[in-house]
Simulated assay, not measured.
Amino acid sequence: MELVCPAGTPAALRAAVDAGAHTIYCGFADETNARNFPGLNFSREEMAAGVAYAHRAGAKLLIAINTFPRAGSEDLWHRAVDDAEAVGADAVILADLGLLAYAAEHRSGLRRHLSVQAAAANPDAIMFYAEAFDVKRVVLPRVLSVEEIAAINRDIDVETEVFVFGGLCVMAEGRCSLSSYATGRSPNMHGVCSPASHVVYGEEQEELVSRLAGFTIHKVAKDAPAPYPTLCKGCFSAGGHTGHVFEDPISLDAAELIPRLAEAGVTALKIEGRQRSRAYVSAVVKSFRRATDAIAAGRPVPVSELAHLTEGQTSTLGAYRKIWR
């Protein structure tokens, strides 16, 4: 299966390619990119150089233009699509209907993938995008079980890509009202979920307390690993009980499920982490490249050795097993 790997900087892109990534995804340094953070992402010149570096190694490069255009500013997003074709990208990853229509009409030779931000989670929705905009691949949201993915693949004629490592979104992808309410920063408009600028840590009565925009999210012992304070994975109190509603605040690691995902008809495995360092990218890509090579050769998938790189130093299979149902 194709291994699709993140790169938030040119250095991370080179690290991903050198570590064995089949495909790298990244974004321009502006609002068109759902990871629009200072110090991350690519100028047009850097993107062109990144495409050339990937292609010399036999890898592909995808450009994520996966936010939703603001009214009156559509030209910024249209230019991003135009420039993606100009720099030689192998595909663009889009979510907005209008932007998909623009790309299909004006840049028909540029391959189109449907972003996870579109939250297309059933065959009817996926085939609509395929028939209306000639979408070739859909990135499935992280709320589907393996069985549901297999059922989708039986009914569509589109490639599917699924997340296997990194941050775990348990909401409708990119549409989190919780983060917007708490911080005023919308995930799918600003590319910011629980922005670091709003996070505060403090010690209270032998506990480390994490707050987001004044809301207390977690309390852990001072010597325990502290998860990143994401609202959907915070602790909530109701009916005299305090606990996590969906998943504990830990990272996704679905390496052990790769054989089942292959049987379910998945085309590509995606690693989350464009905000991560090149060392992180290199280590994760190498580990999952060993796994995909093992699958291709008919060997057992090696045991994951990435716990030290996960949130809270532990991991979950998330919705692939959907324990909250």
Rank of each mutant, 00 (worst) to 15 (best):
R211K: 06
L212G: 01
A213T: 06
A213D: 05
G214C: 10
G214V: 11
F215D: 05
T216A: 01
I217D: 00
I217V: 15
V220R: 11
V220C: 01
A221F: 10
A221V: 02
K222S: 05
K222H: 02
P225I: 00
Y228T: 01
P229K: 03
T230N: 10
L231T: 07
L231F: 07
G234T: 10
G234E: 06
C235Y: 14
F236S: 14
S237V: 10
A238R: 13
A238K: 14
G239W: 12
G240R: 15
G240S: 07
G240T: 10
H241R: 15
G243A: 14
H244S: 08
H244M: 07
V245H: 12
V245P: 03
F246S: 13
E247L: 07
D248T: 10
D248E: 12
I250V: 13
I250P: 10
L252M: 04
L252R: 09
L252G: 04
D253S: 10
D253I: 15
A254P: 05
A254T: 09
A254K: 08
A254G: 04
A254V: 10
E256D: 13
E256L: 08
L257P: 08
L257A: 08
I258L: 15
I258P: 03
R260L: 09
R260S: 11
L261K: 05
A262K: 14
A262Q: 13
E263C: 00
A264H: 00
A264F: 00
A264E: 03
G265D: 04
G265V: 06
V266F: 04
